Simulated scan of single mutants.
Amino acid sequence: MHDLVSRQGRRLMLILALFHIGVIAASNYLVQLPFSVLGLHTTWGAFSFPFIFLATDLTVRLFGASLARRIVLVAMAPALVVSYLLSVLFVDGRFAGLGALATFDTLVARIALASFCAYLFGQLLDVRVFARLRTLDRWWIAPTVSTVLGNLLDTLLFFSIAFAGSRNAFMAEHWLQIAWVDYAFKMLISLCVFLPLYGVLLGFLARRLQSMTADRTLRTPAWLR
Score class of each variant (00 low, 15 high):
residue 196 P to N: 13
residue 99 G to C: 06
residue 188 L to Q: 06
residue 175 W to M: 03
residue 128 R to Y: 13
residue 106 T to G: 10
residue 20 H to N: 10
residue 196 P to S: 08
residue 17 A to F: 05
residue 47 F to Q: 02
residue 221 P to W: 06
residue 111 I to K: 01
residue 184 A to M: 05
residue 91 V to L: 09
residue 45 G to I: 00
residue 165 G to C: 13
residue 96 A to D: 03
residue 224 L to N: 11
residue 59 T to M: 10
residue 206 A to C: 11
residue 27 S to H: 06
residue 115 S to K: 03
residue 96 A to H: 08
residue 69 R to P: 05
residue 64 G to C: 08
residue 191 L to D: 01
residue 33 L to S: 04
residue 45 G to C: 05
residue 169 A to N: 10
residue 157 L to S: 04
residue 107 L to V: 07
residue 40 L to R: 12
residue 144 T to I: 03
residue 207 R to C: 01
residue 145 V to Q: 09
residue 217 T to L: 06
residue 189 I to Q: 03
residue 220 T to Q: 13
residue 7 R to C: 10
residue 33 L to Q: 09
residue 105 D to C: 03
residue 86 L to M: 15
residue 201 L to M: 13
residue 208 R to H: 10
residue 51 F to G: 01
residue 69 R to M: 06
residue 12 L to W: 13
residue 100 A to Y: 09
residue 41 H to I: 11
residue 217 T to A: 14
residue 51 F to A: 15
residue 27 S to C: 09
residue 185 F to S: 03
residue 156 L to R: 09
residue 180 W to F: 15
residue 61 R to K: 15
residue 30 L to G: 06
residue 75 A to S: 15
residue 223 W to E: 14
residue 80 L to A: 11
residue 23 V to L: 07
residue 90 F to H: 04
residue 84 Y to A: 02
residue 99 G to A: 05
residue 87 S to K: 08
residue 183 Y to E: 06
residue 149 L to P: 04
residue 24 I to P: 00
residue 12 L to T: 06
residue 113 L to F: 11
residue 197 L to G: 12
